[in-house]
């Protein structure tokens, strides 16, 4: 599942990030905000009206705003067992 499809209030873990879908600076910013393989995420809020874009995602102790376009580059899984160590 991609992060943009994750239902609200469901905890999930990041499996894989397709860095090719974003620029280098965007990638750096994502990493800096704690988006990395193995990190726990939870979608908290969706954007306005019918667009539902961007999404507010809880990463660790922080809440970040991320556009769907970027969230779709992030694969997540709802069980932690597959988390790479």
């Amino acid at each position: 599942m991609q992060l943009d499809q994750l239902p609200l209030r469901k905890k999930a873990w990041i499996q894989d990030i397709d860095w090719a879908q974003m620029s280098e600076d965007e990638g750096k910013r994502l990493e800096a905000l704690g988006i990395e393989e193995g990190a726990q995420v939870e979608a908290l809020h969706r954007g306005v009206l019918f667009w539902q874009d961007p999404i507010a995602v809880k990463v660790g102790r922080m809440t970040i705003a991320i556009r769907k376009a970027h969230a779709s580059a992030i694969s997540v899984s709802e069980n932690d067992e597959s988390q790479p160590q």
Partner: peptide, 10 residues
Amino acid sequence: GVNSGFLMEM
């Protein structure tokens, strides 16, 4: 240029 998108801490 690539839009820096909208990534920010809330």
